[in-house]
Computed example of a mutant assay.
Amino acid sequence: MAEDGFVRVDGLTRHFALGAGGLLGGRPQIVRAVDDVSFSIRRGETLAVVGESGCGKTTVGRLVLRLIEADAGRIEIGGTDIRALDDAALRRFRRRIQIVIQDPFGSLNPRMTIGAIILEPLEVHREGNAASRRARLAALLEMVGLPAEFAARFPHELSGGQRQRVGIARALALETDLLVCDEAVSALDVSVQAQIVNLLQRIKREQGLTYLFISHDMAIVRHMADRIAVMYLGQIVETGPKRAIFDAPAHPYTRALLASVPRSEPGTRPAPAVLGDIPSPIDPPPGCRFHTRCPHAGDICRTVRPAPVALAAAHTASCHLLDPATAAQLRSPS
């Protein structure tokens, strides 16, 4: 992890129990949603966490915010170990860490006006008086590009993009340092996606925010991210600067993700890899978890988990094919 990380996550783990094996009994089933995940984010940077649905990226975002509790690992934000905070201290700290979720309608109380929704964080944290809150509301509406008269409307009177702007305004109502964007544009029309991406980029520059941007859409990530962490079945398999990931992807899974991105120019997209179905996180494969879908897998991949291999500045990938100590075993004839 980077030594100057504003956000530092080390060994983050969360498993979910599914009960005692269903109606027929048996051993309890465990979903290994997040397994020993580590990363860092510099202040003012956007780290995108990408991967297929079910890979654990949303769980990582909620663990970082302590919306759910981790089984193990350390989460440090701005020098504060947030897993060590008691309830009162965590409540005070929450003014600095906020989230924008995928469903802009489900995140808003339909019985509250837009103004009341945006001002609710100020009231919960007893911030300011009535006059200062009204001024803050006006500033927030202007910041996200909504007319002042929208304060009197209700969520059902707004479009999807307008509702997401309300969600962003609410997330920024307090002294936000870290904003987790969990598929924040995936439920929107393509043209609206571009508007919200541009809005998030502008607010980041103006407010000096740090983003953890969770997405499965590599085209959106290309516009938003400074660095990228690729997740597969609860583990990070590759991290690096955006340019390194897009121009020189190292892990076979990363290459498959990029090959699946639609291109507007005919003949410019690599042939998509045929990977087959993703294994269950209840019973992930031993060794390298990608080996059941990897065209390069060998015996060592089926038994030994690969360690991260440094490829270039801040670019690492966990693949036996990249490790000189094990690559020869995979390249040699069987």
Rank of each mutant, 00 (worst) to 15 (best):
R91I: 09
G44V: 14
I41N: 03
V34C: 10
G26Q: 13
D35Y: 00
T58K: 05
A84Q: 10
V31N: 07
R92G: 15
I82C: 13
R74Q: 09
S38A: 14
T58C: 04
D81T: 07
A89Y: 05
R92E: 15
T59Q: 12
R62C: 06
D86F: 13
D86H: 07
R74C: 08
V50R: 07
V60E: 11
D35C: 09
A70H: 00
G26H: 11
G73D: 05
G56Q: 01
L65Q: 08
I68T: 05
E52G: 08
D81I: 07
L67K: 05
D81G: 06
S53H: 14
A33D: 07
V34N: 13
I77C: 02
E45P: 00
Q29Y: 10
G26L: 10
G26M: 11
E69D: 04
E45R: 04
L90D: 02
R92H: 12
A70F: 01
D81V: 06
D87P: 06
R83S: 12
C55N: 06
I41M: 06
G25Q: 07
G51I: 07
L24M: 14
A72G: 09
D35F: 06
E52Q: 04
P28Q: 12
S53N: 14
G26T: 13
G61Q: 00
G56H: 01
G54H: 11
I75W: 03
R42Y: 03
G54E: 08
I41H: 05
S53L: 09
R27Q: 15
G78A: 12
A70P: 02
V60M: 10
D35R: 02
E52W: 09
D35T: 14
E52H: 08
A89P: 09
L90K: 06
I68H: 03
V50E: 08
A89M: 12
S40N: 03
G56Y: 04
L63H: 02
L63G: 01
A33F: 07
S38G: 14
D87M: 04
R42E: 01
F39Y: 15
I41D: 04
I75K: 00
R66L: 08
K57I: 03
G44K: 06
L85A: 14
V31I: 15
G25S: 07
I68S: 00
A88W: 11
A33Q: 04
L67Y: 02
Q29S: 11
V60K: 11
R66A: 01
V31G: 09
L65K: 03
G44C: 02
R42L: 02
V31P: 12
I82L: 10
D36H: 10
C55S: 15
L85F: 14
T80G: 00
A84P: 07
R66E: 05
V64H: 00
G51Y: 01
V60P: 06
E52T: 12
G79D: 01
T80R: 11
I41P: 05
G78H: 04
I68P: 00
R62Q: 10
E45W: 05
I77T: 00
P28G: 11
L23G: 03
L47N: 04
G54Y: 12
L67V: 09
L65R: 02
R42G: 03
R27P: 10
G79N: 06
I30E: 13
